[in-house]
Design a protein around this nucleic acid. Structure first.
Length: 256
DNA sequence: AAGACGAAAGTGGTTGA
DNA sequence: TCAACAACTTTCGTCTT
């Protein structure tokens, strides 16, 4: 999991490091490249330069490798912009690689497949992003991300349960500056709603938004429908519709 | 004045013939 | 391929705080 030594400053770190980064799927050769040692004597410079040149050529050889390298840098760019953790990036790389292995990229744009892989990885890791959010950072339309995603899941036999509104609560709540209590309340509301079947067929973001809105009112941290709607990426009308269903059919104790 | 409400018409995507 | 359909959005006038 890490080095057995400790370094107290930069100099020590440089001195003690003997290996490169851990194996990772986000680099096209899994990060297993050679690292060079210390200073190279001047008379050998030219020779080393040529060797390095060959090394590069060999590492990235053929169209497949080149495409993979491009795709993975694209993937990294998108996930940085979305602020996704490493684990999700790794998961997305795995999906993309198997798409390549199964020859599914033909006729589809690399960007599209990258975006779809990311979308799938986010869902698998229970940190969902909406199609809109993915499309926002990539050079692909929402429509294409969705279409490619469905294609990938079908061809690769990936089975993902529908996204639960609960998965959106922590992110939306923190963007709204709501307390932990409000979060718990929202989750409680959603769970009750799911038992009564009020969430099936509804967009998960809308349900999450309504639950958060209700929670914010109940706990005296009121946010406007507008604020919640903007962050959840739905309209005020949708929040109203959901929250009407929720308050009517759930016994919520207090009246709003 | 800002926020909430709800009716009505429009949009994009899925489903089933 | 096409129409029916449900969820969601847009828009807008009205009510509430």
């Amino acid at each position: 999991m890490g080095p057995e030594w400790r370094a107290f400053d930069h100099e020590q770190r440089d001195k003690r490091t003997r290996v490169g980064a851990p194996i990772t799927y986000t680099i096209h050769d899994k990060g297993l490249s050679t690292i060079y040692g210390r200073d190279i004597p001047a008379r050998n410079r030219a020779q080393w330069y040529r060797l390095r040149k060959w090394q590069r050529k060999i590492r990235i050889s053929g169209a497949t490798e080149r495409n993979l390298a491009f795709a993975l840098s694209e993937l990294d760019r998108d996930s940085s912009r979305l602020g996704l953790p490493r684990s999700v990036r790794e998961a997305a790389s795995v999906v993309y690689r198997s798409a390549v292995d199964n020859k599914l990229i033909r006729g589809r744009s690399i960007e599209g497949v990258v975006a779809a892989s990311l979308y799938a990885a986010c869902r698998r890791c229970n940190v969902p992003r909406t199609l809109d959010e993915i499309a926002e950072v990539s050079r692909v339309t929402k429509k294409e991300v969705g279409r490619t995603y469905r294609f990938l899941t079908r061809e690769l036999n990936i089975k993902l349960p529908p996204t639960s509104p609960v998965d959106y609560v922590p992110r939306f709540a923190s963007e709204l500056g709501l307390s932990g209590e409000a979060q718990s309340k929202a989750i409680e509301i959603i769970e009750k709603a799911m038992e009564k079947g009020l969430t099936s067929g509804r967009g998960p973001t809308g349900v999450a938004a309504a639950a958060l809105y209700i929670a914010s009112v109940l706990l005296g941290e009121r946010k406007t429908q507008r604020d919640v709607a903007d962050i959840a990426g739905v309209t005020e009308v949708t929040i109203r519709n959901r929250y009407k269903e929720l308050t009517e059919q759930l016994e919520m104790g207090v009246t709003l």
